[in-house]
Design a binder for these strands. Structure first.
Lengths: 257, 257
DNA sequence: GTAGCATGTATCATAATACGATACTCCGCG
DNA sequence: CGCGGAGTATCGTATTATGATACATGCTAC
């Protein structure tokens, strides 16, 4: 080390663990089995560090290594982590029976969405035959502003908090029809504040309509929502307002009651 | 260090990462929010190591820390890990439409179980209103020998491999009715080999009947199964054999076809 | 009301670890 | 057949993670 004073160590931070977690985050919906080289380029870590970290994750059962191709994949422990999450989140136990009931009543895809920073994450998903694969599995994370569930939650926030979110939070484009204008998003959230539920069209999947009602906490603010996805071919606005939205709101309103 | 030769370092193993993973595994269905002391006692690690590791997991977003109680809980990243797992496992995408169809056809709880070492893990679960909470969420792991899904898979193995599993693998007791005799388990697996599906009664939940059909790989050996759970009050053996088992087998047989 | 204990936080000297560099092996492709 | 890429293995050493320990806070028991 040069005679320049050494950078002070952060003794509460374990760098090797953080690097290991970075390796885990290299896996996602489009990176499903990765070589050491893939991991090195996706994490920016040195290849011998990646070798050590990947080997350790493998030995600890977190990654599976294909002996023929030497590529790594997530192991079943990743599912066990979701299992532990489900037990740790009180909302899950409360919401599950209501989602199941709603799914049976309306016969459409029903999800529990939770706020996760500036995104929403689908914690529970009850799919139907119509459901696109990506929309059947739990754990998907999407920008809150770009989803009906996120907008339904924000609709319950104080106007200044809502405004800050509309101004600052990320938006994303999934289809040519995805709303990109923050003014339009603001209007949709205001509309949801009036109606008590949010409606989105073709935001994430073309011709899919999302309807979401907030699960309002005792403080008046929602950090979760029930979201239902229907086909725009089968439902016009009248039908949604009449047949779908009331059922979602009833279900959402009973969860924390 | 004493003058005794130092133990040779395993330079391919990162101890700090392994310790961090050990902290993650401290969370399960009965340990849902943990203090530093809880983590120390559950992992056997020194309290200052636990402090550093927990802080790092928190900073990296893997754990949420309640500011009032200072206790830690799993974060949404745990759900994202399941999401990444689902994309990485080709069976999930193939099985999901079949499970949804089967769930609609028979109106009962339908699951995809996969072999995980000497256990099975429920990768996908499509619950109904009747389903006990623990049976609605993915990621639960159970001894293979103690479940109909595990027995259905083993039934497709070569006799000597099957015999070794019956002899050596763990069994567990969940209800007073849980089968504890390995001879009986062997007979049930043989029966499944003949029928093409396995039936279990009250193994994990009293009066719940499990029916499972193996998803047989091209090599003739199954590492996954479709499992359906029905009430023993509503289904006797005749009804299961007639109405339930054929539908499960048909679904299982089309997944890898 | 006070003392003691448990829990959490913060710090530090140092031993051990994790690091990057590098060499070697193997395999596939031109 | 040679070269390059990917993976594996090794090593000297700088950096990190360690356990010990001190301190703060809050709660409980006497």
């Amino acid at each position: 080390m040069s005679d320049r004073p050494a950078k002070k160590q952060n003794t509460l931070f374990v760098g090797a663990l953080a690097k290991g977690l970075k390796l885990l985050r290299a896996f996602d919906e489009t990176h499903t089995d990765l070589s050491l080289g893939d991991l090195a380029s996706r994490t920016g870590l040195d290849k011998s560090a990646v070798q050590r970290l990947a080997n350790t994750l493998h030995v600890e059962g977190m990654l599976v290594k294909d002996p023929a191709t030497r590529r790594y994949r997530p192991s079943h422990q990743w599912l066990e982590m979701a299992y532990a999450y489900y037990w740790s989140d009180p909302l899950i136990g409360r919401a599950m029976p209501k989602l199941i009931e709603l799914s049976r009543d309306i016969g459409e895809t029903v999800n529990l969405a939770e706020l996760s920073g500036e995104h929403i994450i689908y914690a529970l998903r009850l799919p139907t035959q119509r459901t696109h694969f990506a929309a059947t599995i739990a754990g998907r994370r999407l920008p809150a502003l770009s989803t009906s569930a996120g907008r339904a939650m924000l609709a319950t926030w104080r106007p200044e908090d809502r405004e800050a979110a509309v101004r600052d939070w990320p938006i994303a484009s999934f289809t040519p029809a995805t709303t990109r204008d923050r003014g339009t998003i603001r209007d949709l959230i205001e509309d949801a504040a009036v109606r008590g539920y949010a409606i989105s069209r073709s935001e994430v999947i073309l011709n899919e309509v999302g309807v979401a009602a907030p699960i309002v906490a005792p403080d008046g603010r929602a950090a979760a929502a029930i979201h239902v996805s229907v086909s725009g071919h089968s439902y016009d606005l009248d039908r949604i307002n009449r047949d779908i939205a009331p059922a979602i709101q009833d279900a959402a309103n009973t969860i924390l009651a």
